[in-house]
Amino acid sequence: MHNFQEQRADTFETFAKVGRGVKLPKTAVVVYEFVAEEVDTAWAAVEKALRAKGFKTSHAGDVLQARIGPIAIDAETVWQWERAATEIVLPFEFYPDGWELDDA
């Protein structure tokens, strides 16, 4: 079973660390990354489910990227979207592997 409390704590800890040395933008596109557990996975289905909730998707190798935004860049907002994306991908056997701000 996935531990959402631990995932949330990691996100808030990242904000605490980054916020000390870097000025974050007020809004940005956030890229959430998920790793496929199985080699033979349902790429089309998981991407369709994410797109239905407003994410833009792409994948390379076993890594799925789900982009959202621009959204407010604060720990709570980033976490809310991270949780939403994670809830979508878990049934497809994808697991969270972090997030970053899109620098494009």
Rank of each mutant, 00 (worst) to 15 (best):
M1P: 15
N3K: 13
N3R: 10
Q5T: 12
Q5A: 13
Q5N: 11
R8T: 04
D10C: 12
D10W: 14
F12Y: 10
F12P: 08
F15T: 05
K17L: 13
K17H: 12
V18D: 06
G19N: 06
R20H: 07
V22L: 14
V22R: 13
K23Q: 10
L24E: 10
T27A: 14
V29C: 00
V31L: 15
Y32H: 09
F34A: 01
V35I: 14
A36N: 01
E38D: 14
E38I: 13
V39S: 13
D40A: 13
T41S: 12
W43Q: 01
A44F: 15
A45W: 10
E47Y: 01
K48C: 08
A49G: 02
A49V: 00
A49D: 07
R51F: 06
R51Q: 11
A52L: 03
F55G: 00
T57D: 00
T57A: 02
T57F: 00
S58G: 08
S58I: 01
H59L: 04
A60Q: 15
A60I: 10
A60V: 09
G61M: 09
D62Q: 11
V63A: 05
Q65W: 09
R67N: 09
R67Q: 10
I68W: 03
I68C: 04
G69V: 03
G69H: 05
P70W: 07
P70A: 07
I73R: 03
A75R: 07
E76Q: 10
V78A: 03
V78H: 05
W79F: 05
W79V: 07
Q80D: 08
W81N: 08
A85K: 02
T86G: 06
E87G: 11
I88N: 01
V89C: 00
F92G: 05
F94H: 01
Y95R: 02
Y95G: 06
P96A: 08
P96G: 07
D97M: 03
D97S: 04
D97K: 03
G98S: 06
G98H: 05
W99S: 00
W99H: 04
W99P: 02
E100I: 14
E100T: 11
L101P: 04
D102M: 10
D103H: 14
A104Y: 11
